[in-house]
Amino acid sequence: MTNPSQSLIIKMVSRTLATFIQVFGIYVIIHGHYSPGGGFQGGALLAAGILLIRMTEGREESQPTLATAIATPLASLGAVIFAGLGVVILFFGGNYMDYGAVPVPGMEVPVVRYYGILIVEVGIGLAVMTGLVSIFDDMVRTNRQSGPDMGRGGMS
């Protein structure tokens, strides 16, 4: 963390591994309807991929992967996707989180629910990934050594 590895091989391996982990994470989110898994597990896997890079390359070097500054707003965005979906349903006259109340042309109610769950899972995935990365970043940030990018600004 504070002593990022300089070894090229480790970097290469971790980058590759991270990619696979993240692909698997996305798969877990999407495929959560049919097999174990879902937003949280997938999100945690996505986060694990990023954390792997963070750990091997150091926090500053790996910023381009997911900048700390946007991690928190993205976590908020994930939660907003979830909560916002519920609010949107209110406008269609359903109860909060009643996906079935949204009239989608050409779709049976269960299918609408299916996609509702999917959207929710994506929101969870996003929120969990960025949330965990944000926690990790806050933890490993050293007190006095620094980079120029420390938490400057949000999405203003």
Binding site: M1, P36, G37, G38, A44, L45, A48, L51
Partner: peptide, 20 residues
């Protein structure tokens, strides 16, 4: 499902946090 999550979290994320 729980097992999967626990594997990712308990062995992965918590471990990383701990080490950090």
């Amino acid at each position: 499902d729980v097992g999967f999550t626990e594997a990712v979290v308990g062995a992965g994320i918590v471990g990383v946090f701990f080490v950090a």
